[in-house]
Design a binder for these strands. Structure first.
Length: 901
DNA sequence: GCCCTCACG
DNA sequence: ACGTACGTGAGGGCC
């Protein structure tokens, strides 16, 4: 009685039947595929100590765990395909003929999957000449006949034909994270057919992926209609004579043989000659010792923890040997020539000001940790830090270098910077958290800082002293232990030179620029602020008068209400949350009301006031300087970014904002600022990488590239025919190419029609044909290898390059074109910076490099050194790398940053 | 913490 | 039919 009632109750997609036996059948190959692609982004970061990829194993194990918990089976079998040839390929040679071979990175994981299943006490099976589907079909039938509740787990919808009262088919969707249950009822609801009729539908439709044909011109909709009407393929042909003449009838008659063949191929066998029986599938849980060995082999430390939490904790989180780091133990702690990990710990991001809460040094044999900053003033420690011959491993060289400098110490001999190396290996998700970065590389067991210290207002030094010093020790151990693996990965990527010759020395150059800082005169800022305050008050009043009442102009919501509801101006564009009030929208409304111009002026001045007057004033240090932080491990292209404050976006284009630059001055009397910037560096890189002869010629002959492009796209014969407007449009087109052009984007940017934009682009590619070839080639390369590279082998992965979602895919395509250009330009100026720092030192100049703004370097120097810089800086910058076209550098000097440009 | 807007190359 | 230039950081509003 109870059983019958329960039978009609689907619970978690599993039908409960009278017997308490539950059989779980898993389509090993298809779930492995899903697992592999679900964690494809992590492919390169997930390898074990032998370099074996483990992403599919990791995800497969998680999927397995989920389904085991969900079904709680008494019997389990995982079926695998035995090989490429099966009875189906004997019947139809082309069957699955178009399938790409299994990626090598997945194939290498399959033997370990088998090993893991063995250790889990789960039977797995493959059968020559049959697919996993047929093994599952046959076992499902046996299980159902024995009264068991059968669940099939697969990533392939073809298996849904097995659904019945006793068999539920769970299909992994959304990268394997979720399941979709197929039952006879769900079939009826979705398609109006039975699971068995799904075979007939597939027979008529054909299957591109399995590469069998079906009937010409019959797709999903027609196939479903035919099956609903006639019941089966056989039913259709029994009644075909009665059908009215039509193209479809003709196709059905022509392809009759194919339809029956396809049905045969699509039908999963339930009578395969399998040599396993239900009794072989008894499941009673894993052999813990064997499973531990497998997880250890795969470096699955988090799974080890799950396996036996207490025991595994002892393995992963076991106490490391730590001694307090004091002057008394220094001789011992720093003895020997062996490399040592070093760590200067601060809670917050801004290492220019954050208190140092701990200092650590050591090797896995013995760690030394101090929980104050005192040791940084110790002369012996300082001389060890400064000793280039003492090899050091760190996480974030620049951070440690700058912090040490505050105590009068200099760190030399940094060999391994785990953060920097990790960023070069994969630019994505490089958090500042050591534990997270270590985990990315398969090294688990370092707690995230947020766990140990807390976040936000609650962030603090842990109360337990041991917890604190152990955390520091575990972090140093991770750095130490990951060194060999990460350096090997760099070598495998051909990125070792990028690291040792470029990024690693650059970290020190940047540290010294940050430490130098740039002097900023608060009085200049305050004067600008006072004048802005008056003008803003006037504008506010005018705007309130126009609007008829006061409101918060800074609130886009309130502004939208005023403009579009109250004043009835036509809304041009919407955002996710309401009306858009951005500059391009307001400019379109400009002639409709004087309020628009007032708002534009207000916005412009308010931005200068809040971000550049008030904002900058709060960032001036007691030494009268601004010390930004260049973030070296953030951008996806290899550029730097600048924070606290951002000195890479100080106003330039409009005179009002540009006044801010007058506050940036030299730090000594009798000194000046000196500025040098690359001219058209990105387009020169494009001319180089594309090999385009026309573009290269323009640069070799030092022509105005935008005018040159204008002549080409407007088909002019003489430079004098180029009008300002033509040059402007040509310039935008040049930029568009660098950004990975679209006709829509270009049309929006320069306010022309989409058709016209398309004409520009076509003309452009006609005139620079090798640029066109290059854009096509780089996208193809990205598709094939999954990443693109700069001239210095900086790498950016583009997981979306093969996405089904068009937006994602096209975005990845534009990125594939832009990153080699923007990134190579970043490489070039980085080389120049290193050479520049070296030259200043060698020539014993007082001149100091202060800022980098992507294609521009800013120095300060005694006036008498300015003529030297005027020769030296451009020559070093334009010879940083040798391209197929010359690099050009413009420079100037002046009393303030305003005056140098 | 997210959204919008706007500053730079 | 649909959303679109590439790469960043910061301030203010609002929930």
């Amino acid at each position: 009685m109870h059983g019958e009632l329960a039978a009609s109750w689907p619970l978690k997609g599993v039908t409960i039947v009278a017997t308490d036996k539950k059989l779980l059948l898993i389509d090993g190959n298809s779930v492995a595929f899903r697992a592999f692609f679900a964690m494809h982004d992590a492919l390169d970061s997930m390898t074990n100590h032998d370099g074996l990829h483990t992403n599919a194993l990791y995800a497969f194990r998680n999927m397995l765990k989920n389904i085991l918990e969900k079904v709680d089976p008494t019997n389990v079998l995982v079926a695998f395909d035995a090989g490429k040839t099966t009875f189906r390929t004997k019947k139809f040679a082309e069957y699955k003929g178009t399938r790409a071979r299994m990626p090598g990175e997945l194939a290498e994981q399959l033997p370990y999957m088998h090993k893991m299943l063995d250790a889990m006490g789960i039977k797995w099976y493959e059968l020559k000449d049959y697919e996993a589907d047929d093994i599952i079909g046959t076992m499902a039938k046996e299980g159902a006949a024995a009264g068991m509740a059968v669940t099939v787990l697969t990533g392939d919808r073809d298996l849904t034909q097995l659904a019945s009262d006793r068999v539920t088919v769970q299909v992994t969707v959304k990268g394997g994270g979720q399941l979709e249950a197929y039952t006879p009822a769900s079939f009826q609801a979705d398609l109006g057919i039975t699971p068995k009729q799904f075979i007939d539908m597939k027979a008529l439709m054909g299957d591109n992926s399995d590469n069998y044909p079906g009937v010409n011109k019959v797709g999903k909709v027609t196939a479903r209609k035919l099956v609903q009407q006639y019941g089966s393929v056989e039913g259709i042909y029994e009644h075909i004579d009665a059908m009215k003449p039509s193209k479809m009838k003709e196709n059905l008659l022509n392809d009759k043989e194919q339809a029956f063949l396809s049905k045969d191929l699509a039908t999963i066998r339930t009578d395969a000659p399998i040599t396993v029986g239900l009794k072989d599938t008894d499941y009673s849980g894993p052999d813990t010792a064997a499973l531990r060995a497998v997880y250890e082999e795969l470096d699955f430390n988090s799974f080890l923890k799950d396996l036996a939490p207490d025991e595994a904790d002892a393995v992963v989180q076991k106490d490391l040997p730590v001694t307090p780091l004091t002057s008394a133990v220094l001789t011992k702690a720093l003895a020997g020539k062996a490399p040592k990990a070093v760590m200067i710990e601060m809670l917050g991001d801004n290492y220019h000001t954050e208190p140092v809460i701990a200092v650590g040094v050591g090797t896995p044999d013995q760690w030394y940790v101090a929980t104050s900053d005192e040791i940084l003033r110790d002369k012996l420690f300082q001389s060890w830090l400064a000793n280039d011959a003492q090899v050091k491993y760190v996480f974030d060289a620049k951070r440690n270098y700058v912090a040490a400098h505050r105590f009068g110490a200099t760190i030399n001999g940094i060999d391994f910077d785990m953060l920097l190396v990790s960023y070069l290996l994969n630019t994505v998700d490089n958090s500042n958290d050591l534990g997270a970065v270590a985990a990315q590389h398969g090294y688990h067991g370092v707690e995230p800082d947020a766990t140990v210290y807390g976040t936000g207002k609650k962030r603090q030094i842990p109360e337990g002293h041991d917890v604190f010093v152990q955390h520091i020790a575990h972090k140093m151990a991770a750095v130490y232990n990951l060194k060999d693996q990460l350096i090997k990965d760099l070598q495998d990527h051909a990125q070792l030179d990028l690291y040792t010759d470029l990024e690693r020395p650059l970290a020190i150059v940047l540290a010294n620029m940050e430490i130098a800082g740039i002097k900023c005169d608060p009085d200049t800022l305050r004067k600008i602020g006072a004048s802005l305050k008056d003008r803003l008050r006037d504008l506010e009043n005018q705007i309130y008068t126009e609007a008829g009442h006061e409101f918060n102009i800074n609130s886009t919501k309130q502004l939208g209400t005023v403009l579009f509801d109250e004043m009835k101006l036509p809304p041009v564009k919407k955002t996710k949350t309401g009306y858009s009030t951005s500059v391009d929208v307001l400019e379109k409304l400009q002639d409709q009301s004087p309020i628009i111009q007032e708002i534009l002026n207000y916005r412009q001045l308010a931005k200068i006031q809040s971000t550049y007057v008030d904002g900058l004033l709060t960032t001036i240090h007691p030494d009268g300087k601004i010390h930004t932080r260049y973030i070296q491990t953030l951008t996806q292209t290899g550029r730097l970014s600048s924070q606290d404050p951002n000195l890479q976006n100080i106003p330039m284009h409009q005179d009002e904002g540009k006044q801010i630059r007058k506050a940036f001055v030299p730090s000594h009397d009798g000194w000046e600022l000196f500025d040098a910037d690359y001219s058209q560096v990105e387009l020169r890189v494009l001319a180089h990488v594309s090999g385009d002869k026309n573009m290269q010629e323009a640069f070799k002959e030092n022509r105005d590239i935008h005018a040159n492009t204008a002549m080409k796209i407007f088909h002019l014969s003489d430079p004098s025919q180029v009008t300002d407007n033509m040059r402007r449009q040509a310039k935008a087109t040049n930029f568009g190419i660098v950004y990975g052009i679209s006709d829509y984007g270009l049309s929006q940017n320069i306010g022309i029609s989409r058709t016209q934009a398309k004409e520009f682009i076509d003309a452009y590619f006609e005139q620079y044909p090798q640029v066109k070839t290059w854009t096509e080639q780089i996208v193809k390369t990205a598709r094939e290898q999954g990443y693109v590279e700069t001239i210095m082998h900086r790498r950016r992965y583009l997981p979306d390059i093969n996405a089904k979602n068009r937006n994602l895919r096209q975005f990845a395509e534009r990125t594939a074109m832009n990153t080699p250009i923007q990134g190579s330009a970043a490489d070039i100026i980085k080389v120049a910076m290193i050479n520049m720092a070296q030259a200043l030192q060698q020539q014993k100049l007082q001149a100091t490099m202060l800022l980098q703004v992507h294609d521009e370097l800013i120095f300060e120097a005694p006036k008498e050194e300015i003529p030297i810089l005027a020769k030296l800086v451009p020559s070093i910058m334009d010879s940083a790398v040798k391209l197929a076209v010359p690099l050009k550098v413009d420079s100037s000097s002046g009393a303030t940053w305003y005056d140098v440009k």
